[in-house]
Design a protein around this nucleic acid. Structure first.
Lengths: 210, 210
DNA sequence: GCTATTTAGTAACAATTGTTACATAAGTAA
DNA sequence: TTACTTATGTAACAATTGTTACTAAATAGC
């Protein structure tokens, strides 16, 4: 654990804090596709990402869902911070987008460290800041972009996160994440293929040039 | 200033912090409709709302805009917190929705107080939390609701903020805030009037029952 | 091999939202 | 009053998105 911790958080946290984290933190490995947080669940610990990526999804009560943003190494989940403070249920669902390693820190430590370590305070504030900015970006997409533009952006984002020019998703999966229907996604993807921007295959989409 | 400060923040902050705020804070009154923060502007101080309400708008580069949420007494602007930290430009525009009183606190004090006062830390964290939740709610509306449902929600929210059953807005103004066109709003409002939910007049809309 | 399931393609149509154009009414200012 | 500006109503149409239905291809399981 120490190594991953130092690599990702060594430049952020002072040694004393790093020590504390490695003492109370629990290293966890989440395989791709596995759930980390369920909507409505109470949160007892806070994840610090070491490697991989986590997809944060929003669900409403009618089975609708929407991709909010991705977390990568060095990130933490602002919603968790938020739940810890108020001891409220999670408003989001977190799913491993890739095989992911993270350190779980018990929430009792949070307040203690916030008083004790300036670097921890800054990290928490910066996390909130980053998440707010990502929420803004998501909101921009939904409010100002048309579905074909959103799809393009989605393909680009996904490719960045997975560091792979090939996106291994079905049309149905993409439709869920953009909150639309499979037929709409198939239609728009075909248009992108005809424009020479992507190449469509069963279960995967190869990005030529966005 | 002391009075408004104590009324709205007395239960949150310890006396020492209240003292500091009243020493360095600047009381400001913003008339309805006046701008407080412009998109792209650098922020030098942080507003603590005493009375009134502030409307937070998102602008994109093509002149599109969208209402994000309202701030009320006891609130502060998370985007400001965020800008102070990173010394970045404002991503939003803030406009007084009502005649508004607020205390402007110089940003230099922020980090100092974060180290010094637990109540300040909690206030800042809770503000971030509240803003994230409001962003989520806005996102839900855009992603999951149709325009007529969004309009209904808008009328209700607006009425709550102004504490008035009559909403003094033109159809065009509403259209800007929901990022649609005037004709669409006129159409849907007329439908709501025919359903007996509202009464339409020039320059105002009276809520009968939503 | 065969069969069932999953995935993708596509047409036809419906619903929603957006646009253009014009008419009318209400308020404003001279 | 008259002329002008602003706000609203409405029709007709366009564009986008959503839905249903059906087809065929690829894959998985046997």
């Amino acid at each position: 654990m120490i190594q991953g911790l130092k690599n990702n958080y060594g430049h952020l946290f002072e040694d004393a804090l790093l020590d504390e984290i490695s003492q109370v933190g629990l290293l966890k490995e989440i395989p791709e596709g596995h759930k980390l947080i369920e909507t409505g669940q109470f949160i007892k610990s806070m994840p610090l990402l070491i490697s991989g990526a986590i997809k944060i999804m929003r669900d409403d009560n009618d089975g609708d869902e929407l991709l909010l943003y991705f977390l990568e190494s060095g990130d933490t989940c602002a919603m968790t911070l938020t739940c810890c403070l108020g001891n409220t249920k999670s408003e989001i669902r977190a799913v491993a987008e890739l095989d992911t390693k993270l350190i779980m820190v018990p929430i009792e430590k949070m307040e203690e460290w916030t008083g004790k370590y300036k670097s921890w305070r800054n990290f928490v504030l910066e996390s909130y800041h980053n998440r707010l900015m990502e929420m803004l970006e998501t909101l921009d997409s939904i409010a100002f972009l048309k579905m074909d533009e959103r799809l393009l952006k989605y393909l680009g984002d996904k490719s960045n996160i997975t560091k792979d020019q090939v996106i291994y998703s079905t049309h149905q999966e993409i439709a869920y994440e953009l909150h639309t229907s499979r037929v709409v996604i198939s239609r728009l993807l075909k248009k992108l293929e005809n424009q020479g921007k992507i190449e469509l295959n069963r279960n995967n989409i190869k990005i030529i040039s966005l």
